[in-house]
Nucleic acid binder design. Structure first.
Lengths: 103, 103
DNA sequence: CAATAAGCATCACAATGTAGAACATATGAG
DNA sequence: CTCATATGTTCTACATTGTGATGCTTATTG
């Protein structure tokens, strides 16, 4: 089963779509979660997700911007979608009937 | 942040309410997730959740049933509710706008 | 008291989470 | 043309969580 952070990464990558790459995904995560995501955490997780076949990555070309170094592009695979979906479903099921309100 | 399995355990415990104890929680998890939950996984996690103050456990009294050994009763603390809530909210946020359908 | 049932604790190891330093490569300034 | 600065990625190390197997306790039943 996916871990929670792995889920965050896959979700962010999916949201980024066509132009998903390392640094952008990181920003996306920070925006949606409102907490900081360290560089290391991100790339380590990308490596693991790729080796499990849940995402596919490849080096893009460098762009003509200052510091426009080649980016590591990311795409979520079908298997990745299935796993993410399963994770979400499981969390949803586990929560069914609960309210999580502090009484 | 809570781990995924920790979330399953807290949720199950919350659902069990008054009569939540080790073995019952385990069954609850197996029913909602449809997959098996090993004994070790459960108790190890209960220990960790308790040491983080997310649940409180205590030994109940033994009952007059065959093998009616004393049970380890479990109650989710307010802190536990907050954490579980935060976990759920984060997963929900990360999912916003996504559909998770295999195209 | 032996057999069996229900439940719990412990240990060991695998998988995930997380931070930070180091490295690479692009442009822009002078 | 080379130095400062910006964008991005790789590597390394360690902390936290996930998971299964095995064994220990304490209860009833015959």
């Amino acid at each position: 089963m996916l871990g929670e952070f792995e889920y965050l990464v896959i979700s962010a990558a999916a949201r980024c779509g066509e132009n998903g790459y390392g640094a952008a995904i990181r920003e996306e995560i920070e925006q949606t979660t409102k907490r900081s995501c360290s560089i290391g955490a991100l790339y380590t997780t990308l490596d693991r997700l790729e080796s499990k076949g849940l995402i596919k990555t490849w080096m893009g070309e460098s762009t003509a911007e200052r510091g426009g170094r080649a980016k590591r592009m990311v795409r979520v695979t079908e298997k990745g979608v299935r796993e993410a979906s399963a994770f979400y479903r499981e969390v949803t099921r586990a929560t069914r009937g609960l309210v999580w309100e502090v009484k």
